[in-house]
Nucleic acid binder design. Structure first.
Lengths: 352, 352
DNA sequence: CTGAAAGCGCTTACAG
DNA sequence: CTGAAAGCGCTTACAG
């Protein structure tokens, strides 16, 4: 239907040179006289030539694309705005450089390994961004065995040949605990993510460290799968305790919001009877009543830097780890001083 | 580092035939004797041969990938679980067929057109899935001019050569209105999406139709950009009315949740003073207190069917539009009969 | 500085 | 049924 697009052969003929020279000129490589170069560039412009990624891919053994494999329950991913914002951030770097993002979502870790293998066997991507690092992450040996490039979000707990883009969760969690302590809370719980996930673990560690520093009992920790449903379950558990917490530090916003629901349903006021902090700063948290005190990270920037680092690595540039500003506490309305009533040990029976 | 992977040339040599024959055998094309075929297949298996997507792409002029371009504010996308779930649905079809998804997120419509052009100029994708159809959508003429394959979510309001995967929003919205009418509401408002977006328009039309059928005033309609912030703004506006609504039908869940926040902040109880319905059935809605009455659609299935239809189209199969079960109302706690207090015309000043 | 050629790994007419 | 060859659109030594 549309006439066939011009190739470098057409450009070469128009400029009266060989294909090889055209390639050199078009790729800004040395060894082409200025006049010839401009003649070639002019010809290519006149013909409306644009490089064929496929031809280039085959001969240069590159795909000009980056991969992102998300191996989590879609429902959890969906209620976490992190990925979407992160992807938007990568796009800011990729698009101007003519790179694309290949996205895979898989429900479990078996399919995850297959997906990485397939991505590289097919030469779909030149490198991958590793998110949600796990303890002793099996992707590291897998990817090094495949001989591929990667960048990790956060530093792995095992030997890794890949650069990392670091964003420290710790300060945000510590500030959240400190904020609650200053408000007068002494029974503070933590609802965290899976212990197998590094950022879940680091948030938990920060919680425990800060509680210990404040000479408070740091043992009120419940592990979840990061879903709102599991956050609700954990909250019920905590509110059912004889000596229930007056504040809960959650590891993400959707669990915090679900937790508020559970508390309210059990007849507790937020923040009067229970203070709540989240993590992520999702948009809806700003519009709740009470609005959600939370910990914010710059997911957009994280995405941009990760893409940037990986692209440099692929280009053969030696890159160091890069550190982003740490997570920071955003105080809103879901935290307050504990009420007198809630200071007295109670025995609320949390609704389901 | 790893030894070079075998090519069909290696397989040909091992099987003692020509490369061409290998290609025929490997692609299940007729014209290869059974014995030769098995000999070739065996050789390829022994060598661990796997096709090179790049070689195949160049010679067959296919990319074996589908594209999805999302041209919306990342923040709105992030608070809407639709895309994530939809993508997970496409993946269920793509992965087993060795296809990949190339995802682009762009902030505005100018970049959007460039992105589609680039995707095809680079031969990144064999077709695209068109979501968020707009009135008189400029992507339709663009894509037909580019001569590419596509599938649309919903039916465009202009001539379109592409098949559609249909999921009717109407019944869900109509049932929501009907549900509120049956509860005794007479002042019901609608907070909708951008009028330029077809599904925003269709939800609005369904609202108006059902209100009219119930002989109620259908004029309480506010348009938004689908963000939680704008949903809050619209709610403030409605609650500031002299004759404020006792129920609001929102066009998505995040606006509904923000709307509940605004109502509560203005001293109104939900559902006692204001009933609220959402759209999408995001996970967090189930865990709020009160839990959110909403309209659910099967985004996962929508994704699968869209990918399936597009893949068939690309394979040269003639495909018809496919219809999915319509959106359905999910009644939870955010709707109830209007309280006596709220039936009396009041003059609440909504806090911002 | 420039040309002619081989090669990347496939597919696909064209002969036999 | 099978082989030998050309071609997809680039890149990259190798000569000159």
């Amino acid at each position: 239907m549309s006439k066939p697009r011009p190739t470098i052969a057409d450009v070469a003929k128009a400029a009266g040179v060989s294909k090889g020279l055209v390639s050199f000129a078009l790729n800004d490589r040395p060894g082409v006289s200025p006049e010839t170069r401009t003649r070639i560039l002019e010809a290519s412009r006149e013909l409306g030539w644009t490089p064929s990624l496929r031809g280039r891919s085959l001969s240069s053994d590159k795909s000009f694309a980056l991969g992102l494999v998300i191996a989590r329950n879609p429902e959890v991913v969906a209620s976490d705005s992190f990925y979407t914002t992160f992807i938007a951030g990568t796009e800011k770097i990729l698009a101007p450089q003519g790179r694309a993002l290949v996205l895979s979502m898989v429900p479990n870790e078996i399919l995850e390994a297959d997906t990485y293998r397939k991505l590289f066997a097919d030469g779909r991507v030149d490198g991958v961004i590793l998110t949600d690092l796990r303890s002793n992450d099996n992707r590291l040996p897998l990817l090094t065995a495949l001989g591929v490039q990667a960048v990790t979000l956060g530093r792995p707990d095992v030997e890794s040949p890949y650069p990392s883009v670091l964003l420290d969760d710790g300060p945000g969690i510590r500030d959240a605990v400190q904020h609650l302590v200053e408000l007068g809370h002494t029974r503070i719980a933590h609802v965290g993510g899976p212990s197998g996930m590094l950022h879940g673990g680091s948030r938990r560690a920060s919680f425990i460290a800060q509680m210990t520093a404040a000479r408070l009992d740091p043992s009120l920790v419940v592990e979840t799968d990061f879903s709102a449903a599991d956050g609700a379950r954990a909250t019920s558990e905590l509110l059912g305790l004889n000596d229930r917490p007056t504040a809960i530090v959650y590891s993400n916003d959707s669990m915090a919001i679900a937790g508020i629901g559970v508390a309210r349903r059990a007849g507790l006021g937020v923040p009067d009877d229970l203070s709540v902090t989240g993590f992520d700063d999702i948009e809806i948290g700003r519009h709740l009543y009470p609005s959600l005190t939370t910990v914010a990270t710059d997911a957009l920037e994280w995405g941009s830097r990760a893409a940037d680092v990986l692209l440099q690595l692929i280009a053969g540039v030696k890159v160091d780890d890069v550190s982003l500003p740490p997570a920071r506490l955003v105080i809103r309305e879901s935290t307050a001083a504990p009420s007198v009533r809630s200071r007295i040990p109670t025995n609320h029976t949390a609704a389901r």
